[in-house]
Write a protein that binds this DNA or RNA. Structure first.
Length: 462
RNA sequence: GUGGUCGUAGCUCAGCUGGUUAGAGCGAUAGAUUGUGGAUCUAUAGGUCGUGGGUUCGAGCCCCAUCUUCCACCCCA
């Protein structure tokens, strides 16, 4: 009779101590930068009312939401529904129709929508422009792949209550600062939804904007010909596709052949507005020094449909993994919760992908793995008591220390110190208790010195 | 959600066209060394071969289902 092996749901992970130390290093780096720009932390619940989440991420997003089954007799509602619908033809067992009756809560899909809900709910307590950051897990019922998990951590910074393009620039600065601090080389891509709308406008396919952007986004991936095929398949006319060709050729829309774009958008009001915005952002960016490359990339689309202005995405230069970071401006996200005219802009860092990239490129500093600095060897009952006191004094000086819990062979205790990467071991037996000195062994060099406890503390405080 | 792929000891893997009691390296534990670690040597433990069915005299190997992994699509951090 063997129990089934314990396991965790698909796409989720346990984090062991080493991984946690690395992840915390990432979180702390990100948090420090956020705070440097004046953002303040908030948290929201893991679960939201399903009505808060549904319809915010497009049809695809609704499918990827984890829905929580109502507690108690959820079938009751279904039975009532069946009774009522017996005469009507709502006999369909369609799960989509059933969902609202059996599930009223869902796990959050991102941090932006719950934040919008938060802003509306707490609008009278907040100081605007409200700058907040939020580091929490999100859940998506996606099919897992490399760098794609069903539970993953996002680190969001957003500011709501201002249309200022200074914030767009601030987000680029934050992004640059974070990836510089972590040592990851990235390409920051910037575009503007209004320009994309203007392009669709200019080729007479304003209603096909989502189709055009989705296809354009794939230019780097599948190439020009396939994109053109897909456009036609998505119902864009041949003339329109023909007109789009010069746009597809643009490397950086604000460099060399920038005239192409402004000509193209001349008759589109929204397009001109977008170009104006992005030029202004560019003017700001010229003033500050960035470590990483950035490009005004017309091909950048981004799927979330609440973006209305600037959009940003960041990719690692040295690892093939999805984007590590993405965001943009949304003019009316709080509108759906009853607070109109509250423009926001924000960006989200994917902690798990950043972790995977850093691991692959060996970017974690070796210094972050140490925890305990001194191990007191256990020689027996009297010595234990003696060490208990010494260890307390070491800790009081801010140095992490531990005492081996059993009197076992020194070899075994030393081995424990080695495996936990503890740099110093203290040997205090009867002789040492008598003399008041302790033997301190440097586990790296193997050297051993006799000293008093205060000398050890001084040594470790260096 | 669609199509494909992987799964053998704690880890990395071997295992012939189905044929006795399924192997290696590393790791673990114990000892050589009862106050001195990393090396070496010796010994020991550890697997219902992801799970459940089926075919067969016989299945780690073949078939079906299911879970998991990774990949492509979709979409995205």
């Amino acid at each position: 009779m063997s129990l089934p092996k314990p396991s965790i749901p698909k796409g989720t992970r346990d984090f062991n101590p080493v991984e946690m130390i690395r992840r915390n290093f990432i979180f702390e780096t990100i948090r420090n930068v956020f705070q440097m720009f004046g953002y303040q932390p908030i948290e929201t619940p893991a679960m939201e009312n399903l009505s808060t989440l549904m319809g915010k991420y497009g049809e695809e997003g609704d499918k990827l939401l984890f829905k929580i089954l109502n507690s108690g007799d959820f079938m009751h509602a279904v039975q009532n529904l069946n009774l009522k619908s017996q005469n009507s033809e709502l006999k369909s067992q369609n799960y989509k129709d059933l969902t609202p009756y059996i599930s009223e809560k869902g796990l959050r899909y991102d941090l932006t929508v719950p934040f919008a809900r938060f802003v509306v709910q707490h609008q009278h307590e907040l100081i605007f422009p409200f700058k907040r950051y939020q580091i929490q897990p999100v859940w998506r019922a996606d099919r897992p792949q490399k760098g794609r998990y069903r539970e993953f951590f996002q680190c969001d910074v957003d500011v709501v209550g201002s249309h200022s393009l200074l914030y767009e620039v601030e987000l680029v600065q934050i992004t640059d600062a974070i990836f510089s601090a972590l040592g990851i080389k990235v390409l920051i891509r910037i575009n503007n939804r209004k320009i994309l709308a203007g392009i669709a406008d200019a080729v007479g396919a304003a209603d096909k904007l989502p189709d055009i952007t989705i296809a354009m986004d794939k230019l780097d991936k599948i190439g020009l010909e396939k994109v053109n095929e897909e456009l036609i398949q998505r119902g864009i006319s041949r003339e329109a596709v023909e007109k789009l060709q010069p746009i597809f050729q643009l490397e950086d829309m604000l460099k060399s052949n920038a005239g192409i774009l402004s000509d193209f958008l001349r008759n589109s009001e929204i397009g001109c507005k977008g170009l104006e915005e992005i030029e202004k952002v560019n003017d700001f960016l010229k003033i500050i020094d960035l470590n990483n490359k950035f490009i005004f990339d017309i091909k950048l689309a981004r799927g979330l449909n609440y973006y209305t202005g600037t959009i940003i995405e960041v990719n690692a230069l040295d690892v093939a993994i999805g984007s590590m970071c993405g965001g943009g401006r949304y003019d009316d996200l709080t509108g759906i919760f009853g607070l109109p005219d509250m423009s926001g802009v924000g960006i989200s860092f994917g902690a798990d992908r950043i972790h995977d990239v850093m691991l692959e490129l060996n970017l974690f500093p070796s210094t972050i793995v140490t925890s305990t600095r001194v191990l007191f060897i256990n020689f027996g009952a009297d010595e234990e008591k003696y060490c208990l006191n010494l260890a307390s004094r070491v800790r009081a000086a801010g140095i992490p220390a531990e005492i081996y819990p059993e009197q076992v062979k020194i070899k075994k205790q030393m081995d424990y110190a080695n495996r936990k990467n503890i740099p110093y071991v203290v040997l205090a037996g009867q002789d040492e208790i008598q003399s008041g000195y302790i033997a301190v062994k440097d586990m790296k060099s193997g050297e051993q010195h006799t000293m008093v406890i205060d000398e050890l503390i001084t040594l470790l405080q260096l």
